[in-house]
């Protein structure tokens, strides 16, 4: 995959927010990270640690206080459709049908849709029958698939996912994890997944980045050496899980000195 696109390079990223009374709160501190084109990487960390902020920086919705993010050698300066973003809330435009939501991006840029593209992505996300439905008629899982399709139809090289399955029930969640895997394989794009769910991170990603509590720093980067497609019953799964729990200081509080009530 020498010519594959979607290689990300985060160099010395810092971000501070004003706290409203003249002081600033550091949210991200000196984040350095290389993500290979076509890779699947997850960000894990305590709630509110700033991993979502990092994702928003990568999307271009916020600007870093320091440092640069490069995508295929080009510095990120504002949002671009080559970096698709999906939030925890699907945020479908309620006044448009599923189909209308999907074609929003290409139409907004004044592009003609290639023939069959819409149908392809409806099919890929299993929404063909619901193309004329309005968002309020969709279940949570379907709405999230429509949000995915809406991002994918722009042929992004990077897909940024901000806890996209966080609001779904456990059952739908596991189904959607399989769909995410399928989509990643089919589209060969770089996926960055912010999640709270350790199992989800292990099940899907090649590498898991564990962050410290705020200000977020990279605590550790774990390679997940399991081959795809993965099974949730794999015993190695539990070893990895324990390792991550330990990194997050979430194993038994008696054994660990500092217990973080963050999740």
């Amino acid at each position: 995959m020498a010519d594959a696109k979607g290689c990300l390079s985060l160099q010395r990223i810092t971000k501070v927010f004003p706290n409203g009374s003249g002081q600033t709160i550091p949210v991200l501190q000196d984040i350095n990270l290389e993500i290979r084109a076509g890779g699947f990487i997850s960000f894990l960390g305590p709630s509110g640690c700033g991993k979502s902020t990092l994702l928003r920086l990568m999307a271009g919705l916020e600007t870093a206080t320091g440092g640069v993010i490069y995508v295929d050698g080009e510095a990120v300066q504002g949002p671009h459709y080559s970096r698709g973003l999906v939030f925890q809330d699907p945020n479908l435009f309620p006044w448009l049908t599923v189909e209308g939501n999907l074609v929003f991006g290409p139409r907004a840029r004044g592009n003609e849709l290639e023939k069959g593209i819409l149908e392809y992505f409806l099919e890929l996300t299993g929404l063909t029958e619901f193309r004329r439905a309005f968002p309020h008629q969709l279940s949570g899982g379907m709405a999230q698939r429509a949000a995915l399709a809406r991002a994918l139809i722009n042929r992004p090289v990077v897909l940024l996912l901000d806890e996209p399955l966080g609001a779904l029930d456990a059952f739908t969640r596991m189904q959607m994890q399989d769909e995410l895997y399928r989509i990643w394989r089919a589209q060969q794009i770089t996926v960055v997944l912010v999640t709270h769910d350790i199992d989800e991170a292990i099940y899907l990603s090649e590498r898991v980045v564990v962050f410290t509590p705020r200000p977020a720093r990279i605590k550790s980067i774990l390679d997940i050496p399991l081959s795809y497609p993965r099974s949730r019953e794999n015993p190695d799964f539990f070893l990895l899980r324990n390792e991550i729990l330990k990194l997050l200081n979430l194993s038994r509080p008696e054994e660990e000195g500092e217990f973080v009530y963050a999740i």
């Binding site: 271009g60 949002p79 459709y81 939030f87 991006g105 722009n154």
Partner: peptide
């Protein structure tokens, strides 16, 4: 605000944001 952010990541410019997102919403 999320509608506007989503639209921007989909490649919408200011005109589209106003006419096709803000006004319908």
């Amino acid at each position: 605000k999320s509608y506007l952010e989503v639209a921007r990541t989909l490649g919408a410019g200011d005109r589209v944001l106003l006419l096709r997102v803000a006004i319908p919403a």
